[in-house]
Write a protein that binds this DNA or RNA. Structure first.
Lengths: 224, 224
DNA sequence: ACTGTTTCTTTAGGTATACTTTAGAATAAT
DNA sequence: ATTATTCTAAAGTATACCTAAAGAAACAGT
């Protein structure tokens, strides 16, 4: 689950990104409306969190432009308590929810999760492949009554694999999707995480395996 | 993978059904909106391809009705180039993607596959010739229930051959296409790979052969 | 037909490459 | 302060790829 966060207060932006990353989201932060629009148009996001008051291009104009292009990515916008009229305006412009500042971390997370669930009602909380389950709320893999918790990175890798079982996912794709385009992490980082995931899959005797295809990537397959 | 195809032009409908069946989908064709809705409501489909302009009930109404019933089957709709406003309308109504006419066969297949994959389904991407299958998702060749993994180079050579069966492909073409124009690899490299591919084809008793035509190149043919 | 030449076929082996795994250091979370 | 996570480093392992060389088939010239 990849989110775009747009907020001009860089201190708040940093902590927003942090909050989401701690909750196993992948979050990209931008600090102005123009960047927000540009990033949103790539359609790489499952959701967008948008501050309404930003220098240059404001949040409402950003939503309008996004929707004009036919992009339906769910948008939550953040408003100061006083800006009541703007909330209505924002919803009219195509936002899916708003959250008045100040807000609690847990409320932010809950509302964003709800928004994603509402908009993508096909995105289930538990993803299953060959009786192996990945739980999106507890970040656990389970098979039968055995289960293992996954760390954030392990979860993100596992999520990509189980969403497209029987499909090769390039190592580069893991890196660009999880760490970001401009990231300079080495492929070996992925290798190490895969190794650790395999250990956990083994420990619950999961009937799946992560096979690697040389010069291509990793693929999740059922084990008979 | 079962698809529902709705298209009022019966000639186009027939060829659409044919295109999908050739690519290992099961495709049911209907030629009007009312039938499309009735079939869609059975929820037997992994995906729906819907022409937007149809006599009687149009495509957008069909999508609206389907979504109203809480059915989330992914829908791709087909539009004429000019019907720009309808695309937005269609996406608003709950379609997952649209494809402007005219479109190429490969683009249609790619987009439908992408759409199905987004909805968390396994969509095998298979090229077939004389019951020999090349799986683009797993880099495997298979015949019956026997299969063999291919290495990256072997896969690329095999892909070129099976995409144009019964056509001679020059050794030079393999080199420039797979290794690049400016590559200095020797033709013998291709020979070696072809030899290894033949070994794998034999090991699964594939009913095809890669024949060499002197002073010309290689050709993939059916073996009776 | 015979021989030499060319052109592919196949085998085998070395090397570079690309992953696996382990351990531990740096970083972050509790 | 302690624990967990993430990344780095390094040693180990497998194999894809190419090279080289010997064998087989097709062809040309005599």
């Amino acid at each position: 689950m990849r989110l775009l966060i747009a907020e001009d207060d860089t201190r708040l932006l940093k902590s927003l990104v942090h909050i989401f990353e701690r909750s196993h989201f992948i979050a990209d932060g931008v600090s102005n409306g123009t960047d927000a629009l540009e990033y949103a148009l790539t359609e790489n996001y499952d959701g967008i969190v948008l501050d309404i008051m930003m220098p240059g291009m404001d949040g409402i104009s950003v939503i309008e432009e996004i929707r004009k292009k036919g992009i339906t990515t769910p948008v939550m916008f953040l408003t100061a308590k006083t800006e009541v009229y703007q909330r209505v305006e924002g919803l009219d412009a195509g936002a899916d929810d708003y959250l008045p500042k100040p807000f609690s971390t847990s409320e932010l997370l809950a509302r964003v999760r709800a928004m994603l669930r509402r908009k993508n009602n096909y995105v289930p909380d538990i993803i299953e492949f060959n009786t192996l389950c990945l739980n999106r709320s507890t970040y656990e893999i389970s098979f039968g009554n055995a289960s293992q918790p996954l760390s954030a990175k392990e979860f993100q890798i596992m999520e990509m694999l189980i969403q497209q079982p029987n499909y090769i996912i390039q190592t580069e794709n893991f890196i660009s999707h999880i760490w970001g385009w401009d990231s300079d992490v080495d492929a070996s980082v992925v290798w190490v995480h895969i190794s650790n995931i395999r250990k956990k899959l083994n420990s619950i005797k999961a009937p799946v395996e992560i096979r690697f295809v040389r010069n291509a990537g990793y693929i999740m397959e059922a084990v008979t």
